Amino acid sequence: MQLRKVRKDGINEVGCLVVDELGAPIDRICRYTLIEIAGRADSTQENITRHIIHIERWAEQLDINLEEEVAIRGLVQGELFTSLVRHLESYSEKPRNITPIT
């Protein structure tokens, strides 16, 4: 997964696409990044998209279907949520602080 920034036609705004290894947009993620977070600052959109990519990679490493997990349980299983937090903390310079991968 990679982040691609695109300039929206006719307006002075950037949108963020998440593409697969072949460069094709990942629909379920791009719908969110192009519709739900539109209108925010370009840097905010980019940071949110990086967080999404980070979480998707974590789920992929653990072979977790995020859509199914969130729809059924909402990640309430303590070990999954703790694993995600630990994963995000491992990329932080400060203990107990979560920062996105750059």
Score class of each variant (00 low, 15 high):
R28C: 05
R4N: 09
E60L: 04
H54R: 12
E89A: 13
I53F: 09
P25D: 11
V6F: 03
R40P: 00
V85M: 14
L17N: 02
R40A: 06
D9R: 11
D63I: 11
E68S: 10
T82C: 06
R86W: 09
Y91N: 15
L80K: 14
L88W: 02
R86Q: 15
V70S: 08
T102Y: 13
V14L: 07
G10V: 06
I26N: 03
T33E: 08
S90W: 12
K5D: 11
K8N: 01
H54S: 06
A41P: 00
D9V: 02
A41E: 13
A41M: 02
E46G: 00
W58T: 12
L3G: 02
S83R: 09
L17V: 08
C30T: 05
L80E: 14
Y32R: 08
V70I: 15
R57V: 08
L88Y: 01
W58Y: 15
E13S: 04
L62C: 13
I35R: 07
R86N: 15
I55N: 08
A24D: 11
S92F: 09
V14F: 02
H87Y: 15
E79R: 07
K8D: 03
E60R: 08
Q77K: 13
H51R: 15
R73Y: 08
V70A: 12
R31A: 06
E69L: 09
I35W: 00
E93W: 00
P25W: 05
L75K: 03
K5H: 04
I29E: 03
V76D: 11
A41W: 01
G15Q: 05
G23S: 02
Q77I: 11
E67P: 00
T44W: 06
D42T: 07
G74Y: 04
I11S: 05
A71M: 08
D42R: 06
R7A: 03
H54K: 14
E68N: 08
E89D: 13
R50M: 14
G74V: 07
L75A: 12
I64Q: 09
S43M: 08
D27G: 00
P100T: 14
E89W: 06
E56C: 13
M1K: 07
D42F: 00
D9S: 07
D9G: 00
R73M: 07
G39P: 02
E67S: 07
G15F: 02
E89H: 08
L88R: 11
T102R: 14
R73Q: 11
